[in-house]
């Protein structure tokens, strides 16, 4: 019997990546809501949000383009870039932050002891810290996703590319003896995006949508010059 998990890691076939088409993004924040619902992200409430502690694994940054009357709002969804050379990983003293063979930056919650160095060292500031124990107002705790851990007070968390969906898809595919099909696995944000600005898939699959789009000449990476090799490609037509 050929055990899949005994194969050498280098031979692992997936590399999960995302493409964000800024020309399509309308800033509707459906992805943010979907992410909250899928990943049991705690509700901060207005007071904490005012203190800057609102937790969003994906946030829409808004920039203004042009001078006053001809001004245009531009939106940029920013989530964990799942860097190939992630600055958050080597600084973790307990391996809570590490690199999976699939190219994800994993965050192992129950290892984390909350030194918060990763949060400082992330140039995209997408890592979130649990300042208090999470809570949900009355009916909301009924909709928690049983596939996702509730993170406790004192640990770091961040976008996982909905790793629970990825694993489900991979197990299903493995059971049927095939690779994961393009579009079979979608994180919640991608699934909910009404304009299909977000595309997710396996970059190692040359015919996947994500691989084709990432090769587009509109593509750029966020803070590319830092050498972090982000797994998210932004598309934007330059004027």
């Amino acid at each position: 019997m050929s055990d899949h998990e005994q194969e050498p890691r280098e031979a692992h076939p997936y590399k999960w990546e995302m493409v964000v088409d800024l020309d399509r993004c309308t800033g509707c924040e459906a992805c943010v809501v979907a992410c909250h619902a899928e990943n049991n992200i705690r509700i901060s409430g207005p007071e904490e949000a005012a203190e800057g502690r609102a937790v969003n694994w994906i946030r829409i940054e808004r920039y203004w383009e042009g001078e006053y009357p001809n001004v245009k709002a531009r939106f940029m969804p920013v989530l964990c870039q799942h860097c190939g050379n992630a600055p958050c990983e080597p600084v973790c003293p307990v391996y809570a932050s590490y690199h999976t063979p699939d190219g994800l930056n994993a965050q192992v919650y129950n290892r984390c002891i909350g030194v918060r160095y990763c949060g400082n060292n992330c140039p995209y500031t997408v890592r979130q810290f649990n300042w208090f124990d999470p809570h949900w107002d009355a009916p909301l705790q009924e909709q928690l996703n049983p596939d996702v851990t509730v993170r406790q007070n004192g640990i770091m968390e961040k976008c996982t590319f909905c790793v629970q969906r990825i694993r489900q898809g991979k197990e299903q595919a493995e059971k049927e003896g095939r690779r994961v099909r393009d579009g079979e696995v979608t994180p919640a944000c991608v699934q909910s995006c009404p304009t299909s600005a977000l595309v997710f898939g396996d970059r190692n699959d040359p015919v996947s949508r994500v691989a084709k789009l990432a090769a587009s000449d509109r593509g750029f990476h966020l803070l590319e010059d830092l050498g972090t090799k982000p797994a998210i490609t932004y598309l934007k037509r330059l004027p």
């Binding site: 919650y109 705790q141 928690l144 509730v150 406790q152």
Partner: peptide
């Protein structure tokens, strides 16, 4: 985490 109410609230429904 297992000893916290927040975790049980996930179990309940």
């Amino acid at each position: 985490m297992e000893e916290q109410a927040s975790y049980q609230s996930q179990e309940a429904p």
